[in-house]
Structure formats: C-alpha cells, structure tokens
Computed example of a mutant assay.
Amino acid sequence: MKEFERFLPSNVYDVDKVEEIKKLDRETLVSLLPELLVYTQDMNWPVAPGVLEILLTFPEEIVPHVQAVLSSEDDNWKWFLLHFLVIKLPVASKVQFKDYLLKVAENPTKMELAEELDEIAKEILATLSL
C-alpha cells in the first residue's frame, strides 16, 4: 500500500487531493478503498463528502471494507456509514449487510441503542423488501 500513499489526502481538510483522486483509474481507486473509508469516520470532515462520492461508485468492492467496520467497536463510525453510505448503496450491495442489520435491529447493544443504530438498521432493512 506504500506506493499508493501519495494519492491519499494528507489530512481531513485536503479536499484538493480528493478531487485528484476522482481522476485516478479504477484499478488504483479500488486499491485505495480501505484507506479512503477511514475518511468517513466523521462526515463533518471537509474531505468526507468527496470521499463518500468516490466510495459510492464502488458498491460491490466497498462491501467487505464496510463489513470490517461494522464488526468493530466504533459505533459512531458505524452510524456515519449506515446513514451516509450503506443506505445509498444499491439493493444488491445492501443485502450483503442483512445479517448485521437484522442483529442490530432486533437485538441492539446498549451502545448501539445509544447511537440509534437500531433505527437506521430498520430503515435500511425496509429498503430491502424482505
């Protein structure tokens, strides 16, 4: 991944770099997805909307990276991902999160309740027409 570091934003304010990233070839972009996803930890960061735009162009490729975050303990990041990324993915991608969404909707932890992840999980599940 070292060879791709030069393509990544230098900080959460580096919106110019995000515009440059959008011009990269698809293969390079795919290899940047895990690192780009980090910039969605807070959608208030200036780079976050541009990064989200990039991520949404890779609905299938981003799934395993998002699943890794959803398996983590970072409920705040999960909130941002569910509200800004997962809900906007095509159904074919969203359905891959079904097990996680059902678990959170039906049996949320105290922290998931505090972050209202159960509510967004139910909202996303409703879009799957189960």
Rank of each mutant, 00 (worst) to 15 (best):
E19C: 03
D42Y: 06
N76P: 00
Q41H: 13
L37A: 12
L52V: 13
V66T: 06
V69G: 07
E60Q: 15
W79M: 08
F84Q: 14
M1P: 06
L85A: 12
P59F: 03
K17H: 03
P46Y: 03
R6C: 04
D14F: 14
L36N: 03
P34F: 09
L32I: 13
Q96M: 11
N44P: 00
S10Q: 14
L37F: 06
Q67T: 08
N44V: 10
E20F: 05
Q96A: 05
A105I: 04
N107W: 00
M111P: 00
I21Q: 05
H65W: 15
E61V: 13
L125S: 02
K110F: 08
L52A: 09
I124E: 02
P9G: 03
L130P: 08
L56G: 08
L29Y: 09
S71Q: 14
E73D: 14
K103Y: 04
E106W: 02
M111T: 06
M111N: 07
K103A: 12
D25F: 12
T28Y: 10
W77F: 15
D25C: 12
V69W: 07
V95Y: 03
V66E: 01
L56W: 04
V30S: 07
I87T: 13
F4H: 13
P9L: 05
K103R: 13
M111F: 06
K98G: 02
I54R: 04
V15L: 00
P59V: 05
Q67S: 13
H83G: 04
L102Y: 09
K88Y: 15
K23D: 05
A92H: 15
V63C: 02
F4N: 12
V18P: 08
F97Y: 10
E123M: 09
R6T: 09
L24A: 11
A92E: 15
S129E: 14
